[in-house]
């Protein structure tokens, strides 16, 4: 993952909520939803708050100084997963929201590889437009 490639969340079709460090993400178009583990939720929050990819690397290394060597590949893999699920998109006109003037405090838990779990069980509920006929006036008509 190139450090100069920045990302933004694909709003409004992608929405999320974090409770007690656990995050759920929902793609309103596909009906797929995702849960993030704790470190994944931290990175998601970093993207939401307008941090550059370089800053996200730095922040994650500051949170987990003992595992700093693992961070680049783990974060890159996580960003690639978010990208492949279209939860984030490249941001060409990126404005960094804030500078990292003070280091982030180390996390009070061991580093875990940021992870994304995907759920596809809402496909049946998502009321996609079914194949239908139209009446003589052109109004849709369920078969």
């Amino acid at each position: 993952m190139a450090l100069n490639q920045n990302f933004r969340i694909n709003v409004p079709k992608v929405i999320s909520e974090t409770i007690d460090g656990e995050t759920i993400i929902i793609n309103l178009e596909s009906g797929h939803y995702f849960s993030l583990n704790h470190s994944g939720g931290q990175i998601w929050n970093d993207i939401q708050t307008g941090h550059s990819t370089e800053q996200i690397f730095q922040l994650t290394q500051q949170r987990y100084p003992r595992d700093a060597a693992q961070v680049p590949s783990a974060v890159s893999g996580f960003l690639a997963a978010l990208l492949s699920e279209a939860l984030i998109g490249p941001c060409e006109t990126f404005e960094i929201s804030e500078k990292l003037s003070t280091p982030t405090a180390p996390a009070d838990r061991p580093f875990e590889i940021p992870g994304l779990q995907k759920y596809e069980d809402m496909q049946d509920l998502l009321l996609l437009d079914p194949i239908h006929e139209v009446d003589e006036m052109g109004w849709p008509m369920t078969k």
Binding site: P12, I15, E17, I19, D20, L28, Y33, S35, L125, L127
Partner: peptide, 27 residues
């Protein structure tokens, strides 16, 4: 179980069935 489990049960099936939902609905 944790509150996020409640949200995972409640939110996707609600949002999948209703029009005009948004981040406000999830919040």
């Amino acid at each position: 179980v944790s509150p996020i489990e409640g949200l995972k049960a409640l939110a996707p099936s609600t949002l999948a069935q209703l029009p005009k939902t948004s981040s406000t609905t999830l919040r």
